[in-house]
């Protein structure tokens, strides 16, 4: 099992890249108590039979690893959502694309910690199969909030291809600055009880 919510996210967005998508859109929206996430891709999609089987941990299409009998990304996620009163939904059409959406109740005792969102976005944006990725990240409290949008093509136009350590270090710095602004808003405006999601494992992760 994964430790943090952002690990689940990283794991399943890779599915979209591997499905040959030319565009992947990610919504990652937090309120004080909930996280809603949606991943929409225009990859190859899945037929009804495969959709039925992907939540079975012992099912894999066997394309990446010929003899392997497990596929754990989606089963892990749906199980983690179930464990904390969250939701999980999968919609897909062959040749059109797939949409996965899930939510977590962040104040639930069994909700995983959030993890390091900036480093997850970094890993996704620099994934070798990622053609175009648009990330809408927000924190809304009802009284206001913070949000930012990341677009791979726009960032690559500024930095050049995401290949070498120097370029990725700049990207890392940029992403951290976006996320820090959001964290600052959280600390100024939300109650202490919601902060637990960024504490213990976050330090381990850094």
């Amino acid at each position: 099992m994964h430790i943090c919510i952002d690990d689940y996210l990283l794991d399943i967005v890779q599915n979209s890249f591997e499905a040959g998508s030319s565009l992947v859109e990610l919504t990652f929206a937090e309120t004080g108590t909930n996280l809603f996430c949606e991943i929409r891709d225009n990859g190859k999609g899945m037929n009804a039979e495969i959709q039925r089987r992907v939540l079975d941990p012992f099912y894999s299409d066997g394309e990446k690893h010929k003899k392997r009998k497990v596929g754990l990304g989606l089963p892990f996620l749906s199980q983690a959502c179930d464990a904390c009163d969250g939701t999980f939904a999968l919609q897909s059409e062959e040749g059109i694309g797939t949409t996965v959406s899930f939510s977590f109740r962040l104040d639930h005792i069994d909700a995983p910690p959030m993890g390091n969102v900036a480093s997850t976005f970094l890993a996704l944006l620099s994934h070798p199969l990622c053609e175009e990725l648009v990330i809408e990240r927000s924190l809304e409290t009802g009284k206001g909030g913070e949000a930012y949008t990341l677009r791979k093509s726009e960032l690559e136009a500024v930095l050049g291809p995401f290949e070498t350590s120097g370029t990725l270090a700049l990207l890392r710095q940029y992403l951290s600055s976006q996320e820090e602004e959001l964290e600052q808003y959280r600390e100024e405006n939300l109650l202490d009880m919601h902060r637990r999601n960024t504490s213990p494992s976050r330090q381990q992760e850094m």
Partner: peptide
Amino acid sequence: KPVLDTFLEVLDEKKIDNVSVTQ
């Protein structure tokens, strides 16, 4: 993921810009 992050952090610290880092 934290390992990938650490590679970038340490390479940046050592001012090494041209190592290819992929997944």
